[in-house]
Simulated assay, not measured.
Amino acid sequence: MSARELAGRALARAIREETAAQASALAAAGRPARLVIVTATDDDASGWYVRSLAKAASGVGVECEVVDLGPAADAATIRRELTGRSADPQVSGVMLQTPLPPGASAAELAEAIAVEKDVDGANPWSLGRLAAGRPAFAPATAEAVVRLLAHYEVPLAGRPAVVVGRSTVVGKPLAQLLLDRDATVTVCHSRTADLVAVTRSGELVVAAVGRTHLIGPEYVSPGAVVVDVGTNPTPDGGLAGDVDPAVAAHADALSPVPGGVGPVTTALLLAHTVTAAI
């Protein structure tokens, strides 16, 4: 048996097409969607991601401005920029790119992003509203997982799901999104006893820990659906997931890295920006 591939490019293309149509209508009405990305790092991987996001924004008609404060920026400077951009009526969405300089906390600084412009769901208030069932943008990667599953008509109601990773970027909000779809969710982390036994209990397993090929075949029950959120750099300049490719030999379905969750995440960030502009 070989797992069917949960590729995200077709779904991402459909999201981009809808986003482009909405962005065009907004521009024609004199209210163009505009995304501001605030960055304060010289990290190469971060720089590559920001450039790719700006290029994707241009492709769907979303204006994108990158504000590079430099790796020496202090927390007060970053907060001031986020606050000012959030207050600007010409700005639809605001993102804070990580990593940040030493002494700057992403969780604390994200509080400066207005909830209605927090297109990547980074503000703790956004996460709280998400948990309470109130309107808010979910972190795009977490939402990308559930959108990918829906695209491939993977049923969630009543199914045991295991999320490996408890970050506020993916693990925790994803657990909430799965609960909202009536899955029975277990969240694992570094202190989880007998991780193999826990993950094997899931009919759906989502790996979001940032450790290359952590989830091997022994972690997954035959016939399970596996979503790989990992994007770990490899020595040759590529990307590797959190899931060992050998899992494909007995899983029912597996998302690839790259080409799975990633394209959907980028498309959703731009869709959120357009939604915020409407």
Results as ranks from 00 to 15, higher is better:
V209I: 15
L204F: 03
G216D: 13
G216F: 08
T234N: 13
L239P: 07
H213K: 11
L204V: 04
G216N: 10
I215H: 07
L214M: 14
D236R: 10
G237H: 12
V226C: 11
V220Y: 04
A224W: 00
V229F: 06
D228V: 01
Y219R: 03
A207S: 14
Y219Q: 07
H213T: 06
D228N: 06
L239I: 10
N232W: 02
P222E: 10
D236K: 03
G238R: 12
V226R: 05
V229S: 11
V220Q: 08
V225E: 07
L214G: 00
V205G: 12
R211P: 07
N232C: 13
E218V: 02
T234L: 11
L204H: 01
P217L: 04
I215S: 09
V206F: 01
T234V: 08
G210W: 04
L239S: 13
T212Q: 15
T234R: 14
V226P: 08
V227N: 10
T212D: 11
P217A: 15
A224I: 00
T231R: 15
V209K: 00
L214A: 00
T231S: 15
V220H: 05
I215K: 02
G238Y: 07
V226H: 09
G210F: 08
L204T: 02
T234D: 14
E218Y: 01
G238A: 12
G238P: 10
G237L: 08
T212E: 15
P217G: 13
A207H: 02
A224T: 01
E218M: 05
E218C: 03
T231C: 14
T231M: 15
V209L: 14
P235S: 11
A224C: 08
R211Q: 15
P235R: 09
A207I: 02
P222R: 09
L239W: 14
V209T: 12
V205C: 13
H213A: 12
L204R: 00
V205I: 14
T231P: 06
L214P: 03
V205S: 11
A208K: 00
G216R: 11
V209P: 04
E218H: 14
G237W: 09
Y219G: 06
V220C: 12
G223D: 09
V229I: 12
V226D: 05
G210A: 06
V227K: 04
I215P: 12
V226T: 07
V206W: 01
T212H: 14
G230Y: 04
V226W: 01
P217N: 05
V206C: 10
A208V: 00
G210Y: 05
V227C: 07
V227F: 03
V205R: 03
L239G: 08
R211A: 13
A224P: 10
I215R: 05
V229W: 05
V220S: 07
G230F: 07
V225H: 11
A208N: 02
V229Q: 07
S221K: 15
G238C: 05
P235C: 09
G230S: 10
L204P: 06
I215E: 11
E218Q: 14
A207C: 08
P235I: 01
T234S: 14
V227Y: 06
T231Y: 11
G223S: 06
P233Q: 11
R211V: 15
L239C: 09
L214I: 00
S221G: 12
T212F: 04
L239Y: 10
